[in-house]
Design a protein around this nucleic acid. Sequence first.
DNA 1: CGTCCAGGTCTAC
DNA 2: GGTAGACCTGGACGC
Length: 306
Amino acid sequence: MTFDLPLRGAGGEPVDFHRTIHSHGLIALSPNDVPDEGDSLRMPLRLSGGRSTVIEIRPGAPGFARVTASGALRGAAVQAELTARVRRIMHLDGDYSEFYRVAAGDPELRWVTRGAGRFVHSATLFEDVVKTICTTNCTWSATIRMTDALVAGLGEPVRGVRGARLFPTPQAMVKAGEAWYRDVARTGYRGAYLRAIATSVARGEIDLDALEDTPPEQLPDEALEKRLLELPGVGPYAAAHIMMLMGRYSRPVLDSSTRPRYARLSGRKPRSDAAIVRRFKPYGRFAGLAFWCYVTSDWLDDNGLS
DNA sequence: CGTCCAGGTCTAC
DNA sequence: GGTAGACCTGGACGC
């Protein structure tokens, strides 16, 4: 099944496909992929009715994304489901016009107004939480190794697509057992965190999807952060990171990668976290996103200060 | 071969 | 509420 999706935000703002799928590195982790030299996004999805597919999202006609889903999928209901999934993955229901309004007056971030800054979500928030844990206190190569092991060992195959697997369900991650995390996935001390989180989700003790679907008016960022910090292995860095992946952009992701990046790109000596927070204060609920765009502005080579 | 540390967090003061 | 020390792992270093 193939269909096109208009690339517009909820506020009518532009969405730059390329900048969106390169918003952060997490999206290239297994089982997702950014093939074709980074021009498309491939992602296995579990669908309703026990079906699964691998979708590929690529640039379509100007202003559109082209979505292709593997397998014998037919009918309006499936297309509606896929549309909803892709809208969530690309966060098309988010309104970034306020972010762009502030950025337009910021010479160092004016480039984002062309449609940058939208965070790509994984198939489920659970997947993004697990992957975030796998980024803590280790190198990126270790993150890749651990997520590869989780998918290869516990992910269900996608029928009809050779080699494709879904990200493991919470249930599968509970079932794996302590020894598997230690000896096979080699997740180190993170294994206990991953199992505990998977158990909470599987038992329904925490409903990540409900957290994501609750609007900020009902669940402000402060309260959301508090809930996330209750998860074992989730501290200030991980909470901010997960919140970004939920479209909650108030918290800057401060870690050993972004702090030096900020120092280098701003051409100033390393500054305190408080100074960073001050710099992006004008962005309000988008302060964390502004910081993220700032420290990743050299990821794509054509982001001159236009 | 030993030490250090990477996209931190937890626990114990 | 703020701050040392421990913590799995494995790649990068210095010796």
